[in-house]
Write a protein that binds this DNA or RNA. Structure first.
Lengths: 134, 134
DNA sequence: CTTAAATAGGATAGTTAATATCTTATTAAG
DNA sequence: CTTAATAAGATATTAACTATCCTATTTAAG
C-alpha cells in the first residue's frame, strides 16, 4: 500500500508499520470499529497497543485522513475519508453499505431555506438491504 | 406537561417526576447531551442520580419516545422523537439547528439505485449557520 | 551505510462514561 | 389507605479512552 505512505508523508507523519496497518485494514473493511480493528491488526503486529491505536486514529482524524462514522445504535466506526457518500444500515443483518448518489439538489434546497452554508454532509439510511428482502 | 404523562402511560411507564423532568428538559432544549441534561434536572431534583438518568434515557429510547443523535465530533445527544428533520451543525458557534424539508426525492433515488428499503433516515449538515455568516 | 534528532510505540496508570446490583421509596389501582 | 409493582438512589463495577514515561523506530544528512 504505497498510496498510504504518500498520504502520511503529505501530512509529515512517519510511515510506521502500525499506521500503515491501520489504514490498510480500515481500507479493506470500508468501515470498522476499534475492537475489530485491534483484533485484525494484532494478528499481524502482536505488539500493537490499544494506546497506539487510539492515538493514531485520532491523529489521522485530525489530519483528515480518517473520518469517524457515528451510526445510531452502533459503536463508533472509522473509515478512510473519501468522496461523499451515504450509509445504508440494514436493521436485519446489520450490514453497512455505501452508496454514491447526487445530493446536490437537496443540499441546495436546505441552504436556500435556512441560509446555512453546507461544507459537508453525513447521511444514514436505516432499513432493509436488498439481500435481506429476498 | 400533561402530554408526556400520556406518552408514558401509552408505554406502561410510570410518570415519575424524574421522567417528566427528563422529557420536559429535552423538549425545551431540542437536543441535549447527558451532562447538560443532568445539570438542568439536578437543579429541580437535587437527589437525581446519574444511574437513574442513564437508565431512563435508555428505557425511553427503547420505547421510541426518545432518539439518540450522534453528531460527528460531538458528544452524543438526545431528543424527543418527532417528524423527520435534518440537523444543521455550525462549525463556528457549535449550534445545532433543525430543518424540516422534503427528502422523499432523494430517498426514492437511493431506494431505486440500491434496492434498499428505507425506514428512517438521519442527516447532518456541517457548515456555517446564517448567524455566523453575517 | 552510519548516525543523530525527531517522532512514534508500548506498558502502565489514571480518567471518564456507562452499567449492574441492591435497598429504599414512590406510583397507581382497588 | 393499602399493597403490589416498579422506579429511584447509592454504590460498585465494567468498559472506553487518554496521559505519561521510557524505549524503539524512522528519516534525513553526512
Amino acid at each position: 500500500m504505497e498510496r498510504f505512505k504518500d498520504v502520511l508523508k503529505a501530512s509529515n507523519l512517519k510511515s510506521t508499520h502500525q499506521r500503515l496497518a491501520i489504514l490498510d485494514s480500515i481500507d479493506q473493511f470500508g468501515h470498522i470499529d476499534i475492537d475489530t480493528l485491534f483484533d485484525v491488526i494484532i494478528r499481524k503486529y502482536p505488539t500493537m497497543s490499544k494506546a497506539t491505536l487510539y492515538r493514531n486514529i485520532n491523529d489521522l482524524i485530525n489530519f483528515h485522513i480518517l473520518e469517524e462514522v457515528k451510526l445510531p445504535h452502533q459503536k463508533q466506526q472509522y473509515e478512510i475519508k473519501k468522496v461523499p457518500h451515504i450509509h445504508l444500515l440494514c436493521s436485519k443483518c446489520g450490514s453497512v453499505e455505501d452508496i454514491f448518489i447526487d445530493t446536490k439538489p437537496l443540499l441546495e434546497a436546505i441552504s436556500h431555506q435556512s441560509g446555512f452554508i453546507i461544507n459537508s454532509s453525513f447521511m444514514v439510511m436505516n432499513g432493509i438491504c436488498q439481500h435481506c428482502r429476498s
